[in-house]
Design a protein around this nucleic acid. Sequence first.
DNA 1: CCTACCGATCGGTAGG
DNA 2: CCTACCGATCGGTAGG
Lengths: 207, 207
Amino acid sequence: MKEITDRKKNKGQKTRDKIIQTACELFIENGYHATSTRQITDQLELAPSALYNHFSNKEEIFTAVIEKYHPWNRIPEAVVDADGDDVEELIRNASKKLLKLWGEKPEMSRLHLIEMLEFKGGHLPGIFERVFSKSAESFQVIQNRNPKLNNISQRLFVRAMIGLFFSYIMTDKVSMNSTEDDITSDLDYFADAYLQGVFAKESSDRK
Amino acid sequence: MKEITDRKKNKGQKTRDKIIQTACELFIENGYHATSTRQITDQLELAPSALYNHFSNKEEIFTAVIEKYHPWNRIPEAVVDADGDDVEELIRNASKKLLKLWGEKPEMSRLHLIEMLEFKGGHLPGIFERVFSKSAESFQVIQNRNPKLNNISQRLFVRAMIGLFFSYIMTDKVSMNSTEDDITSDLDYFADAYLQGVFAKESSDRK
DNA sequence: CCTACCGATCGGTAGG
DNA sequence: CCTACCGATCGGTAGG
């Protein structure tokens, strides 16, 4: 009996997942405090109270969202797939994979900003711990396969992944620049405005 | 008569300034949507309605805050003070001054994050325009003083100041890392957790 | 999972 | 600049 309903995810789990996904989109769009629980239930055509069958309060929804969708979650899969004859090659290889994974859903980097701004990073240690131990397992597999890699390599490797994340966050248009549909990045905006200014000045100076 | 009251700022202006300052602190601490207008007035021991003698709504308060305290505002003063025999030296000199100015109140960089996350960067063009034209004036002064500097220099210079801002934002502990009183940065946290993991593994491997 | 409902708090106004 | 007040909306609960 039970197996029949378990073949697919049971209904409750599916609803829960949909809540997390919808909440994620809304949080990314507006931030945490600017997203109301009503917006989430409206979009899913649920009663406002339906959330509380799955979560005990609004913050728990955000916790579920960030634990599932924080970009750090993609690190282990990039590590396990990575290859290379020495550390440098390995790092380059994993970085490439990771940037590709992040590039698929760049909006997710906004979750990190929300986490820092609206929760002061309180959820990060937990996420880090989980991601780190998963990554360490994966690295162990590679390490056993390749005698050149040692624990010093692992250290270098982890540092590289961290650096990569922060530089990704920094340069990412979605998280660091103005509006989504604003194609010109802040950098381009700066440059354009500057050039306009220079040209205006130049032509007025020539008079 | 009027001059007497004008010797110091009139009372209204002083209240307005205090509102902006207090609001700034609260926004930096909690973000925009998580800060209520009541928190602002409570801290100033004002009636809730007193805000609306100075601003027509909550967002106008934020606008005033970011226009006054956004880190970009410090760029012109760093430019005007800068010196150097060639572009490279000039850039290094101005960068140093700017980093010092930003370092005095590093929390202000959170305003940029709030602006991006909760307002989608809508206030930035206005701020940029003002700051840019002020900077251009200052640069013009330096340029007249130093024949080696040309418009190409100015272009390079502006790009450098932009790059500096973004790398400052990225590496700044206040804006990019967890809690204020959490002395270990995320980077250190990563590194520490990693080392712990490695040591644990090493000692268990040796058994 | 819904109906019905709640107290608290929100941003903001009227009128002085 | 304050007193008094407002409708709307917030997150959340009771009970089925």
